[in-house]
Design a protein around this nucleic acid. Structure first.
Lengths: 245, 245
DNA sequence: GTCTATAACGAGATAGAC
DNA sequence: GTCTATCTCGTTATAGAC
């Protein structure tokens, strides 16, 4: 399996990786808007036209970086989830949220690439959709496990959201109640609101202990999707029982 | 009051406005990263050096645009709030949220400027802080009104968040309970998570009726900060009463 | 076939002399 | 303020090395 062909293929993989690595460090330096094929080539001691053997255009390089970022985030979330596979849904939820945050803090520029402002003049192709969905699917799976069989109380939907909620449910998780699927999508967006605010500086001089703040907020998100069960019949007060980590 | 000096001052204001307008349309075209004083000057029929009489540097122009954006958003939120001044806190909350979303949809590039990825090489000066706080202060005020006197049940804080929650409370709203202030800050970040996901394309092929979805999600956020009151003594089930608009 | 290098294009930004 | 020479950019065509 490793003849001359194999060596060539290996070299190709290595050069491709080197190009992406250099591109990533340029991303860190100047942002996605001024990612330049020529600069990448220059830094690698190559000539710009040689890059076109690996990426047919600058946008294709960008797409590869975006897909890599989504996959890296997805992998981090999935392996964090695997590490607490046996735990209760609520713990698995917060573990995935914390992993996403940690990934973002470690790779702020890749996070900005996928969850920050869109790159001007670039539109993401369909190929980015499946990698982008990985964390979301993980969260859906956690909620699905929690709802297995149990009929837990859930927020009521306003009438004008019913059709949309049913559409989303059919698309995402036909086995879950529409109220829950809607809450899940909202929680998913809100999770990244928390991460973005921390990463993009909105919490400066406002939130200091961001780790603890995030942990609590993510836990509250778990309430929203029904992962924290009120006593089904007991004296349920509004204040949910405990949030101690 | 309007001598030659007044006319000069007026002219200066007009030119300043023209520069910012042109800069905003360049923001829309190429993003904040490639905002260039030269291009602005060219489009205005001026010479680049002339711009420096109005903005000492590209960063100062950026700062002015950022402050304008925060102020414009704050004004939109405040006037929407004024329009429902007499309503219940829950309605005032959703009105402010909806106004923020509408503003963002109408000015996506200005929104990206203030809530998207940070501009590489630019750090916002302190002058941007007060305008950036306007919407947040509005939301705090709504919750403050709701809590006037009433002791409403609220989520419990984990022990490790207590010090941070007390610090935030002292900074933001010493008259509110720390649990509520914490929930408020989180809800504030989550609100922009919802808006950013819609605006930045994360809801593509996922959420279609975004208006209804957002309205519901914002209403759920109001629950999180305690704006929707469960019957204080009655048979409170987890499912909150009604969300019908 | 696979890769790299040379050269060139048209468009845009930049720097400095005038 | 104006003009010009010089840069960078993405991209393509072409030719030669392995």
């Amino acid at each position: 399996m490793s003849t001359a062909r194999g060596a060539r293929a290996r070299a190709r993989i290595e050069v491709t990786a080197a190009i992406k690595d250099e591109a990533r460090s340029q991303l860190a330096a100047g942002g996605a808007a001024k990612l330049s094929l020529r600069a990448v080539a220059r830094e690698l001691g190559m000539v710009s036209s040689a890059l076109y053997r690996y990426f047919p255009s600058r946008d294709d390089l960008l797409t590869a970086l975006i897909i890599d970022a989504y996959d890296s985030l997805g992998e981090a979330a999935e392996s964090a989830h695997a590490r607490v596979a046996g735990a209760a849904p609520r713990e698995r939820w917060t573990a995935v949220c914390a992993a996403a945050r940690r990934w973002a803090l470690e790779r702020p520029h890749e996070y900005a690439l996928i969850y920050g402002s869109p790159v001007p003049g670039y539109t993401a192709p369909q190929a980015t959709v499946p990698p982008a969905a990985r964390v979301g699917l993980l969260l859906i799976g956690i909620v699905r496990d929690a709802y297995q069989g149990k009929g837990v109380a859930r927020p009521r939907l306003p009438a004008d959201l019913k059709p949309e909620a049913q559409r989303m449910t059919a698309d995402l998780a036909p086995d879950l109640p529409p109220e829950v699927v809607t809450a899940l999508v909202a929680a998913w967006a809100q999770l990244y609101g928390l991460i973005s605010f921390e990463l993009f500086g909105q919490f400066n001089r406002l939130v200091e202990d961001r780790e603890a703040f995030f942990r609590h907020a993510a836990d509250q998100l778990a309430h929203g999707v029904g992962l924290v069960f009120p006593q089904p019949t007991g004296t349920a007060a509004k204040g949910p029982s405990g949030s101690g980590s």
